[in-house]
Write a protein that binds this DNA or RNA. Structure first.
Lengths: 389, 389
DNA sequence: GATAAAATGTTCCGGGAGAGAACATATACC
DNA sequence: GGTATATGTTCTCTCCCGGAACATTTTATC
């Protein structure tokens, strides 16, 4: 074997899963997780539906729902009118007072929201800024805004806080490795927020969280394989969902499609290379060309080339466009679609749906909250909630 | 929401996993799977090691190993000398008479092998061809070669057969959608082989199976996130392992990095686009330039650009090069490595290992067999083996 | 060479978890 | 109002793992 053969210190995920033995109580945990996850994504569901969806026995579902109810995570309503024969089934719904906080740190604003476990944004605070925020600004704002939001909502319990940042975030979900537009390098934002708020923190790249939101409640709800491109003031962010899992990468830097080379003789990019997607189509260029049809056509073609390349690599079920790329797509929908299909080299290219993202201004808050909810969804009985005074 | 919002008919994998309830016997299945998987990847292991690795109780391991032994999947040897104090632990090893067949259909040859569950290629048959094989050729050869191999080995039991094909294979793992170099389109190879051999069949893209082999037993053993590029007579095949899972894509066509655009003003490719990696570096060009140092440098730079683009998208732990790309890398190792690092825009670029694939001529047979073994590894007690006369 | 210590195999019992049967309950339909 | 249908509830059974107690086998020590 070559000397530079790679061997993992820790076995790959698949092997960990294989290696870890399964004990009897794992079954319970998993089933509790199944139910909470089901009502999280699917909204209020009857116990009968849960029985069918999970394949578990009625009696088991009864016990599980009772436990989730005792944990204060769901409530059971009496059945509404069903329209069908037979005893009506209880309706299980996630409790709205179980929330996650979500912070979005952007170049020109800080925003914090409280998101219910049903995915609804319940309250929000925003601070518009003249200069990019420092990590201290972010922590101070979070503390203040969290207090206000908690007061507004009154007696909610939080699973944690998710923070969306325009930049590279380490695989640890805590360190902002490089956020050039904020001027942050190697910032331990996780620790900072944890210190300020005293609840679990998870930090992530904004594009990743945007896609997560769209996958959970938006235009790509439940789709297995999705490529996502977001155009914003801080460049083009990318993310991908592969087989139902977020593409993370070895260090957490996966999905940086903004620096995909799209024109080998293009302009020099801030990253040092030439013809990156982000230098070929960006906010400034689009603003300049707002009423220049030919220029818009050109940009649309560049976007189409990028999408074609990504389809090549990922063979996605859907490609989602957000921010100014979504706007560009809206005015050049046919051109983009046709170009992508013309450039696709594989069969069934027309199966790939290209669409604009759906969730608008709530997207990042929802996505960040989703990540904060994740541990609770994985282990409902073993994850503590913090009372938010 | 936009009209073209995508909604999956079947929920994404993560949601299926969440939705499917877990029953008590799943625990047993999972633990049997853990043990068989452990000895499959890790070779002979003592029961004590299995106890430590899985975290299960001694007594439980005893019962599980006994069941695997009764199923004829593993044998227990008396302990060798241990050198440590205490009663020596039994050694559990996978039984070599449990095999998978593997077929590689290439433009100029058909090859079939029998691979033990320990990953060793036990026997093989090869037929060199003047013209690309037809599906009938492949089926007839497989039948004949399987008989010979079975006779040579005497009384083995097969989990199934995996077939590696240079082309697009549908997500069903049975249909060759398009293999241009073989001239196959929409060929139900799975059915054909199943009819000929009467054992379970799984068909896959050759690059995918190559990467699987390298991940299981080769240069990327156990690494979580890997990008793989293979140069062969039938072009450049690509594959990626993302978070320990093979990148499949929505239709099964993921990882076609050979058609990634690398020079926007490049030559026209057979796929209709310009400047695909596969047209910029290929076997014919390399042969021509075999002794032209400047040309080799150019090719190395093209390869580096491709790798940089892929690192951007995937942030892999390792990049593996096989076939003529591996050979090119061997003679221009430093140039490729330096160029990739110069073009990488993110921190820690030097963490990414670029290496040549390790398994040589056994790679595809091992990878195809791995896929055939997968169902058995997932559910040792519930998967039947076929006696190979 | 006998004894102690250490590590592992083996056996048996107990507890947790879901399946399923039997019964109870609530609705629609006739 | 009675019946069919669907669901909730309760109880028992089985499966599976953990853990304790004991047996076995090796090394270390006197």
């Amino acid at each position: 074997m070559p000397e530079d053969t790679v061997h993992a210190d820790t076995p790959a995920e698949a092997r960990i899963a294989a290696a870890r033995g399964s004990r009897n109580d794992h079954t319970r945990r998993r089933n509790l997780s199944s139910l909470l996850t089901a009502v999280h994504y699917g909204g209020p569901l009857t116990r009968a539906q849960l029985t069918r969806d999970t394949g578990l026995n009625r009696s088991t579902i009864g016990g599980l729902v009772a436990e989730l109810s005792e944990l204060g995570l769901v409530v059971e309503d009496a059945a509404a009118e069903t329209g069908t024969v037979g005893r009506p089934s209880h309706i299980v719904r996630p409790r709205r007072d179980v929330v996650a906080l979500a912070l979005h740190a952007d170049v020109d604003a800080l925003e914090l929201g409280a998101v219910g476990i049903d995915g609804a944004v319940l309250a929000r605070r925003r601070a518009n800024l003249d200069a990019p925020p420092t990590p201290d600004d972010a922590a101070a704002f979070s503390w203040e805004a969290a207090r206000e939001v908690a007061a507004e909502l009154g007696g909610v319990r939080a699973a944690g806080i998710g923070a969306a940042v325009p930049g590279l975030v380490g695989i640890d979900g805590a360190t902002v490795v490089d956020a050039p537009h904020l001027g942050w390098r190697d910032v331990a934002l996780g620790e900072r927020l944890r210190g300020a708020l005293g609840i679990p923190v998870v930090v992530g790249n904004d594009a990743n969280m945007g896609l997560r939101a769209e996958w959970s409640f938006g235009a790509a709800k439940g789709v297995d394989t999705v490529v996502y491109l977001n155009g914003s003031a801080s460049g083009i962010g990318g993310a991908a969902l592969v087989g139902g899992r977020m593409l993370r990468g070895g260090r957490g830097y996966g999905g940086e499609f903004g620096h995909m080379m799209i024109r080998s003789d293009g302009d020099r990019c801030s990253c040092g290379r030439r013809g990156c997607l982000e230098t070929e189509v960006n906010a400034a260029l689009l603003d300049e060309a707002a009423h220049d049809a030919a220029a818009l056509d050109r940009f649309a073609e560049v976007l189409a080339a990028a999408i074609a390349n990504l389809e090549c690599a990922f063979d996605p079920d859907a490609v989602l466009l957000a921010g100014y790329l979504g706007a560009l797509f809206d005015v050049r929908r046919e051109l983009v679609t046709d170009q992508v299909r013309a450039m696709a080299f594989r069969p069934d290219a027309e199966d790939v749906v290209i669409a604009r993202a759906a969730l608008g201004g709530n997207r990042l808050l929802i996505g960040a909250a989703e990540r904060a909810f994740a541990p609770l969804l994985r282990d409902p009985a073993g994850t503590a909630l913090a009372a938010l005074a």
